[in-house]
Nucleic acid binder design. Structure first.
Length: 276
DNA sequence: CGGCAAACCTGCGAGC
DNA sequence: TGCTCGCAGGTTTGCC
């Protein structure tokens, strides 16, 4: 569930059960995920109230009432499952289980264990090793055509893998890189530095639109999915190109099929004609 | 520094 | 049925 819109959706869902709530029980079911959990992690969380939840890039930040911040990344397969503390046995790959004083249970389930949890102080957050090198948030005014044009200078790589570089701009993952380029009509193999100022502006606009629409859709699908299972981060989209190899190109009359190629080891989906 | 493959893990579907 | 292979929404590391 892990690009910016999904993380944003998970944050919003978690806020409902966590913000303003005290953690009564914290269970670690292994010693770490991608990195080890911080020393005494469970003890340091237990009894703390979560004042606020925020997001930076694809990281969640749980701001505690004692000046510490829990940093959480979902990796590729991480999910936050919300339920009740009903004594049910943990699911496979439930690595961290939190129970609030209100009786809500939040399980961090991550089959591939590319996710992580860490801690930083409020003051040390921006300088934390995960955050220090990050680029601007894509949905802020700091990300505009001019900034993108400057950032692409001297980069001869194809634009698509460059969009995944979180030091350039954060939050774009493999799905939304393809979707944004399609919307902007820019071919994924174009050398990044070859994009004109006009194309940079177009691409920025496309990225912002795609991410904003995905967040909006996540909000609505979250709402009905939550009733039965309480699961967060589930996302139902209709993608224009992603995972649509061989299907007709949507939204234009070019009659081409969506193609798939591999760039820097990851799948890219595109329409050769529309993104000519 | 830029760029790329490999590595970290498990699960699933396709093909034999 | 069972095996192997390739692929999966991310990030880091190590090598050229």
């Amino acid at each position: 569930m892990p690009e910016l819109p999904e993380v944003e959706t998970v944050c919003r869902g978690l806020a409902v059960v966590l913000e303003g709530h005290r953690l009564a029980k914290v269970e670690l079911r292994r010693t770490g995920l991608r990195i080890p959990f911080p020393p005494d992690f469970a003890e340091r969380l237990t009894g703390r109230t979560i004042a606020r939840i925020s997001r930076r890039a694809k990281y969640m930040c749980w701001h505690l009432d004692d000046g510490w911040v829990v940093i959480c990344h979902l990796g590729m397969s991480g999910r936050m499952v919300i339920g009740k503390d009903d004594g049910a046995a943990p699911e496979k790959h439930d690595h961290v289980i939190l129970v609030t004083e209100a009786g809500d249970k939040i399980s961090f389930n991550d089959a591939r264990r590319f996710g992580l949890m860490d801690m930083a102080t409020e003051e040390g957050l921006a300088a934390h090793r995960f955050f220090a090198a990050l680029g601007p948030e894509p949905l802020t005014d700091a990300f505009d055509g001019k900034m993108l044009k400057a950032a692409l200078a001297g980069r001869s790589s194809p634009i698509k893998p460059v969009l995944l570089d979180q030091t350039l701009v954060v939050g774009i993952g493999n799905i939304y890189a393809s979707e944004s380029l399609f919307r902007a009509g820019i071919h994924p193999t174009r050398p990044a530095e070859s994009l004109t100022a006009r194309e940079c502006s177009k691409l920025v606009k496309a990225v912002k639109e795609v991410l904003a629409e995905a967040i909006a859709a996540g909000g609505s699908s979250l709402k009905d999915h939550r009733q039965p299972s309480g699961e967060l981060g589930y996302f139902q989209h209709s993608f224009a190109v992603y995972d649509r190899e061989g299907q007709p190109c949507p939204g234009c009359t070019c009659r081409e099929s969506i193609r798939r190629m591999t760039q820097a080891g990851r799948s890219t989906y595109y329409c050769d004609k529309r993104q000519g």
